[in-house]
Amino acid sequence: MLSRVANSIYWMTRYIERAENIARFISVNLNLTLDFSIQPDFKWSPIIMATGDHLLFEKKYGKDYSSRNVIHFLALDQDYSNSIISCLRAARENARSVREIISSEMWEQVNRYYLELKDATITDLAGRNPHKFFKIITMRGHMFTGLLYTTMSHGEAFQFALAGLLLERADKTSRILDVKYFMLLPNAGDVNTPYDSIQWAAVLKSASGLEMYRKRFHRIIPKQVCDFLIFDGEFPRSIRYCLKKAEKALHNISGTQVDSVSNKAEKSLGRLCADLDYSDIEEIINQGMHEYLDALQVKINTVGNDIHDAFFKAIPSETVAETAQ
């Protein structure tokens, strides 16, 4: 398929998934406010700190980290390039450029999703009823993924869509975990105690993982929550699960077996998956959760760059000589 098209499809699903994960990110806090009705010292600022864009935020809203401002900034601020609405705009522009490749259902869904969000900046549902708003956002993401699976042929284009979606999801799960681990567990020695189980339940909920976690571990213990979200082999939002499925998608593209390597992207992702296969939660906690997740995010970015080099470069390297004639 065309390199330009593969690139657009990969980014289309990445942006859709990113938008959904911003909603999940905010939901952690919303879930907490549900459980603690009165919390005068409840802080929304760490969410903005975790994005690294706090200077942009303060330029617009000053130091007023109210839930309303934070939610507006992350969800509906059209000037902020990482807001939900900006992600949707990018997803839609990518979808528009590959309309002939994706199903019309997918296009109509992303188009409608974006147009509704634009209207939502006026009707202010996010401010009036954020729970409902973010639930709808999450469901919109699921609808798109559902349409991706059920209305598009599972050929090369689909595999690019999948690779983009899964890398994004792995990255975002690691970020949700990162910020919460830091916030909730200032003392690493508490990792084995059921400390603040409600807060950890909120983290699981925001990853849609509370019930699935309970089936495996029953009691909520921070270490096991981390284990579940990083290593679980069956939960579809765990980092390891996402990366292994992404690896399979890349091999489906090249038509090779997972244990062989035919390009740079397969190599770096394969190595990352092997790392995950051969380490465990004890090792990570000893090493330092934050350091581990930081390094993991860098590695996921490297895989992204390698995918770009292997498939999307406007001029594939082997053709440079020919076109120079």
Binding site: L2, R4, A6
Partner: peptide
């Protein structure tokens, strides 16, 4: 659906730039 940038002329033919080469 192709754009000009997706096509290239080489040894007497027109080719598309794809994920698997020309």
């Amino acid at each position: 659906l192709v754009e000009g940038q997706d096509l290239v002329v080489s040894d007497g033919f027109v080719y598309m730039r794809t994920t698997k080469g020309l």
